[in-house]
Design a protein around this nucleic acid. Structure first.
Lengths: 219, 219
DNA sequence: AACCGGTTGTTGTTTTTCCAACACGTGTAA
DNA sequence: TTACACGTGTTGGAAAAACAACAACCGGTT
């Protein structure tokens, strides 16, 4: 069985005992496919029938709008899941997936996860991982919406930092982004954000150096 | 069994035969709780152990940031699911849930869904509904992020309208929002958005009247 | 037809953001 | 040590969005 170790590294299958994998994969009606660089893996708008694990390579997600202007949405590296929610919802893909490098993908039928014999240990584990994956992603997306759904850069920053403090459960913490990446996450312009951060420091909301922040209660 | 018909109306349980509900609910370790108006149903930051179905009443979601400024995020009516992804992810709530009106909530253990005897017909159905719910919400959140993650009102509008055309599979369609609601969804100011729409019409991107739109290929 | 409330479009002003250019500090390698 | 790349902060002018106020329009009611 090729790629077994890559499969075992993905979030979905890492909790399954390695020796249970082959029979599980068979029950899932899974299938390995290879894609050449730049090949379309799944076109936007087409019904998604199966989810995939990107075992090797790199994929880009992008959309093309009604006026034929395209924009890149995300890049996925090996180990990530493709089209999971779309497959689970039996819906049409919101975006096109294309191979940025030669890709190897393990496709599997999401509905099969549900009908597997629950008695077998590994099967429940797979289901648990899949649901966990959906749920975690759900929360990440919602958290980002809470940050983006603000009228000004200042509010976006305070929302993000506040949530980070809450998450790490202290008022002094590191963030996983540098300024450029933070600006991208908040969908604002880098230098304007930098200026806004300086203003926040002046106004006594916080202190910061590089990716380290300390939030201050205003007296 | 009280509230049986309300339970049967929620997205999660509507596909379960009514007569199977009582025993299913028992296996789920489910529990009815009543909340007075303004009572906190679940505080932000606390670990979520169970998901709930709002059977009666109305709940508000809101967050309070580090500087103690609070903002309302959403309002849920009867039939909606509470804290589903948070419970499935065994994570801390991102927001506080409060009763806007007296509420009745059916709490249940998400993990129990997984370990139910899959042989029983209704159990798989519940799991399917739950997963479907997570997946659909996932897609909605992602679609909104794609709209919000644009630098200008113009791009937000084009992104939203384009996606709607794609979804309805035609270039002429109605949207489910009036101007005020659309502005809120895109997180921009209503009158500025109206002005931008006029500009788009002048530039030949589309025509619109009220909530009806027709997108035009530019010649 | 006249009225009314609610929705939508317009206009002028103020505020915020974008953008481009550059300055400064830090860490790395020659 | 100097040179250089890179991340970050700053600044001034251009563009966009917010804001407030009002006008036009629409659908429903009397």
């Amino acid at each position: 069985m090729p790629y077994l170790s890559a499969i075992h590294k993905s979030v979905l299958f890492r909790k399954i005992p390695r020796e249970d994998l082959p029979s599980l994969l068979e029950k899932l009606d899974s299938q390995l496919k290879h894609y050449a660089k730049d090949q379309v893996i799944h076109p936007a708008g087409r019904k998604v029938r199966r989810a995939g694990v990107l075992l090797e390579g790199e994929a880009v997600l992008f959309e093309e709008d009604f006026w034929e202007r395209s924009s890149e949405l995300d890049r996925l590296k090996a180990g990530r899941i493709l089209l999971a929610s779309d497959a689970a919802a039996h819906a049409n893909a919101l975006y096109t997936v294309r191979a940025a490098k030669p890709c190897v993908i393990l496709w599997f039928d999401v509905r099969e996860i549900l009908t597997l014999d629950a008695g077998r240990e590994g099967n429940t584990e797979l289901l648990r991982s899949f649901m966990q994956e959906l749920a975690v992603q759900n929360r990440e997306l919602y958290a980002r919406i809470l940050d983006l759904d603000r009228s000004s850069t200042k509010e976006k920053l305070l929302s993000y930092l506040s949530k980070e403090a809450h998450r790490q459960n202290r008022n002094e913490f590191d963030i996983p982004y540098d300024r450029r990446e933070l600006a991208e996450y908040l969908s604002v312009e880098r230098s304007a954000m930098s200026a806004e951060l300086s203003r926040l420091v002046k106004e006594g909301y916080l202190t910061t150096r590089r990716n380290h922040f300390r939030l201050l209660k205003k007296s």
